[in-house]
Nucleic acid binder design. Structure first.
Lengths: 181, 181
DNA sequence: ATGTTACTCTATCATAGTGATATAGTCAAC
DNA sequence: GTTGACTATATCACTATGATAGAGTAACAT
């Protein structure tokens, strides 16, 4: 059997907050969810069609304030039920694909200096992320609902800890390389 | 354009150490690389065919000590060149899909208790990983080449720090939930 | 007025990546 | 001599990605 379709639940989860178009969904994943979840148009539009066919969502054509009219999707009772069932399920462990680690694993073919440059670049990227997270966090003041703010804080703190861990690891590793003889 | 084929470089990188069959490659990614890289038969075999066609690897039919005969692949000069070019390149930032964070983002639909159970399960999984890492680390004593041992240690320390960070995050988050009112 | 730029919205293509399973050979143990 | 563990190759159905095509809307400038 094929991989489980997780995008399906991401879309249902968002639509369970508020009706959205495909374009809106992409904006959500590019902004609020980007740090732990991504989606593509190439998957969103076909999936919305399927969800509609399976009666998990309904489509309404709506004139937009700015730009062309949009197809707004609303979750059905059946959709909410399926979403909640997924939400309660246990997660399986993730499988990872971390390119910098793959390269470090093969790095005996690189000069030590080249590895250090890679790690410094990694630190820079993670610091970048950290400052992006801080900006997103500033928006949390506007969240009135306490439970929803809690949700946002829980995911955000993961982002911070993950980026900080990456920076610490890269710094430690540079130090280790510098004492290598 | 489509996503960049990273499996290609994973295979070339392994073959750059030693000639391997498709089955051997799967074993490597399931054992040594599993903590930061995964591959599937469904991708390995078609890819080996392509690499052969592009003259990045060559195929030799070899009788195995045990089991049926195997197709062993050897990297060519052209293949080594392409592998090294990738190795020297800069990495782009990763995009993440972390299911437990997606669920926590939507978790205002769950009871606080249910979230705690999820986080405890997460801690358990990460502790499991940690003990698996320790076993793999024990094998490092057999690595004679200092540079190769360095490579293994760098990737392994990431695994440890990543799992520990996950455990710390989950514990902090449970504490936070318990003070929620 | 028109054209440039930015944004909104839907859609599709080619390809990469996943998980499961089918098929078949080898070998040891019971 | 059959069962079960392992070796090995291959393919299927599906999910996911990144890029881009194409068309409408609107602000603003020249």
């Amino acid at each position: 059997m094929a991989k489980e379709n997780k995008s399906k639940y991401a879309l249902l989860g968002l639509l369970n907050f508020v009706p959205l178009s495909g374009y809106d969904i992409k904006k959500w994943t590019d902004n609020s969810l980007r740090f732990f979840w991504s989606e593509n148009y190439g998957h969103i539009y076909p999936l919305l069609k399927e969800l509609e066919k399976a009666e998990l969502v309904t489509r309404q054509k709506v004139d937009s304030e700015k730009g062309p009219s949009k197809n707004v999707f609303t979750i059905t009772q059946k959709g909410t039920k399926e979403f909640l069932a997924w939400l309660k399920q246990n997660e399986n462990p993730e499988t990872y694909r971390i390119e910098i680690l793959l390269k470090l694993f093969f790095s005996s073919k690189l000069a030590l200096n080249e590895i250090i440059v890679k790690l410094e670049n990694h630190i820079h990227q993670q610091e970048q992320l950290l400052s992006e997270y801080k900006e997103v966090e500033n928006g949390f003041d506007h969240i009135k609902d306490k439970r929803i703010r809690l949700s946002a804080e829980m995911t955000m703190s993961y982002g911070f800890m993950h980026a900080e861990m990456n920076i610490n690891w890269a710094r430690d590793t540079i130090a280790k390389i510098k004492t290598f003889r």
